Amino acid sequence: MLEIQNLKGGYGAVEVLRGVSFDIEAGEIVALLGSNGVGKTTVSSILSGLMKPWSGEIRFQGELLNGQSSEAIVERGLIHVPEGRHIFPNLTIRENLELGAYRRAKKNRARNIEKVTAIFPRLKERFDQKAGTLSGGEQQMLAIGRGMMAEPELLILDEPSIGLSPLLVEEMFTLIGQLNADGLPVLLVEQNVLQSMEIASRAFVMENGEISLSGPTKDLMNDPELKRSYLGLS
């Protein structure tokens, strides 16, 4: 579904990505892992058209995305739920969800609201509540639900567990697994290595703007370099 080849990019004269390559097949969760500052969010921003790559190639369902606007990328079905949620705090849950269908799937808005609130029943309980009054976990559910309103072909989740309690983190990863079980491919961009690898089929680990480790998660869990660098195990 998605293929990235030798992606380079950065901010001003500062190079952040130094030739990143990975791919996502239909129906799978792929985890893009690494500590803070290694370039994961830069990858997400380039994929969603918020930043332009310096070089490299991005193909989504066979179509070249380089140079396309973020609006065009959304209309193709590549939907990005950004780090930090970025909900509209002064709008209600209903209004936030409706805005998720602004560029794509507008005709199915009512049906998709029913679908999203079935996945996240807590949102339905607070439908006319201002989004800014929700808890952190509820705001993350709303951000993902807003992304689901656009009927994504591929969903990019950027640090969905950040700022959540351990119990809510567990719940969030369970929900992501359920979305994928329903057939939705997911690019999971995370610092939470262990729980990401529990639900992903493959993982790509970033260091210093490059992919340092990659492979099926069942193999990477036993990789000594991963254990030493990210899990603190010798």
Score class of each variant (00 low, 15 high):
85 R>W: 03
119 I>Y: 07
119 I>K: 11
199 I>T: 11
92 T>I: 11
65 L>K: 10
204 F>I: 05
118 A>P: 00
216 P>S: 07
92 T>S: 15
117 T>Q: 12
103 R>Q: 12
96 N>C: 07
106 K>V: 08
170 E>N: 13
203 A>M: 11
218 K>R: 15
162 I>G: 01
44 S>M: 15
178 Q>N: 15
119 I>N: 01
77 G>W: 05
173 F>V: 07
137 G>N: 11
132 G>D: 04
230 Y>R: 09
56 G>M: 08
221 M>K: 15
187 L>W: 09
194 L>M: 09
196 S>A: 15
169 V>K: 04
109 R>N: 01
38 V>Q: 04
172 M>E: 02
81 V>K: 04
22 F>A: 03
11 Y>T: 04
82 P>E: 02
62 G>Y: 08
232 G>V: 13
8 K>G: 00
178 Q>P: 01
112 N>C: 00
23 D>C: 03
77 G>L: 06
67 G>D: 10
149 M>P: 10
6 N>H: 13
178 Q>I: 00
232 G>R: 12
160 P>F: 02
34 G>M: 05
76 R>P: 01
92 T>H: 10
110 A>Q: 15
44 S>F: 03
11 Y>W: 07
86 H>W: 14
57 E>N: 10
86 H>G: 05
111 R>H: 14
122 R>T: 14
229 S>I: 13
202 R>P: 06
225 E>A: 14
168 L>A: 07
160 P>T: 06
165 S>A: 15
204 F>C: 14
95 E>C: 11
122 R>Y: 02
175 L>D: 01
75 E>F: 00
